[in-house]
């Protein structure tokens, strides 16, 4: 699989269709995002994230692309995408974080193995177009249903307990491919008192959850990085479910649908006196 991807990228670079490729590189056993500028660079450490004996490493490449694209406005980039990366790209384009997107980057997609799809209970473990890989079966995550099955006091007890483990490392936010704000509400003292540890429970996590409405693309990176093993994804999945139920909006899909919180419902001014 990796060979197909490598050769595809090599061709893009050789033909000059892209000036550089944002992918992953294995350097002395450590996998990290890397910008490949020359075709021959691809022969050294180019990887899809696989490490022996461990699940493949993932990074919010879409978020990195955002920075790279704005730093180098004249260049066109290639980017390695899994299903989740692609969903993030769609959402970032929608939020205008990759301006001129259509001609600014080329996606090089590959399907995740079933093992990884199972690991992250991925709803779509492959991008729309794949250069390589067998499309794995989507896996549904049942964690929301588990919470829904609990009674109110049990839910509160559960969340209070897991939120109290939070060490406020902001890892969930920093890894999040769709967290792009320059200033963050989570650091707004007037809303969430700063200096508390664990942070105000449940305000800190519910605030972040509210900000994930219409944004979270369900990549599971937040839960993966959380040192306190807080099941954040479950919380954001619920938010996504609410947004879908109430506004019919699903994140991470192509097209120019607007995020439901970014426009007014009925025509401006037409508010009814009755609710």
């Amino acid at each position: 699989m990796i060979e197909q991807v490598r050769e595809h990228v090599r061709k893009l670079l050789t033909d000059g269709q892209i000036s550089a490729f944002l992918g992953l590189r294995n350097q002395d056993g450590n996998i990290a995002p890397h910008i490949f500028e020359k075709p021959e660079d691809l022969d050294e450490g180019f990887t899809l994230g696989d490490v022996e004996g461990r699940p493949p490493a993932r990074y919010p490449l879409a978020k990195l692309l955002m920075t790279i694209v704005s730093a180098d406005p004249d260049k066109k980039f290639g980017i390695l995408v899994r299903g989740c990366d692609e969903r993030a790209l769609y959402e970032l384009v929608r939020w205008n974080q990759l301006p001129g997107a259509a001609y600014r980057f080329v996606k090089v997609g590959f399907a995740c193995p079933q093992e990884l799809a199972d690991e992250h209970e991925c709803r779509k473990p492959f991008p729309d177009e794949c250069v390589a890989g067998e499309k794995a079966q989507p896996v549904m995550n049942a964690s929301v249903k588990e919470i829904d099955a609990k009674a109110l006091p049990e839910r509160l007890e559960y969340w209070s307990r897991v939120f109290d483990r939070c060490v406020k490392c902001y890892g969930c936010r920093d890894i999040c491919p769709v967290c792009f704000c320059n200033v963050c509400t989570l650091e707004e003292n007037a809303l969430i008192r700063t200096g508390d540890l664990p942070p105000e429970n449940p305000i800190f996590h519910l605030t972040r959850a509210a900000h994930m409405a219409g944004r979270c693309i369900d990549c599971n990176l937040c839960t993966e990085v959380c040192p306190a093993e807080i099941p954040l994804r479950t919380l954001y999945k619920k938010v996504a479910e609410i947004v879908q139920e109430d506004f019919g909006y699903v994140t991470g899909e192509p097209g120019d649908a607007k995020s439901p919180l970014n426009f007014l419902g009925p025509d401006p001014g037409h508010t009814s006196a009755h609710d």
Binding site: D148, L152, R155, L156, W159, P202, L206, A209, A210, K238
Partner: peptide
């Protein structure tokens, strides 16, 4: 918001 509160265990 009400649905999120309910999910977190707070009476909506």
């Amino acid at each position: 918001m009400r649905k999120l509160l309910a999910f977190s265990g707070v009476d909506p």
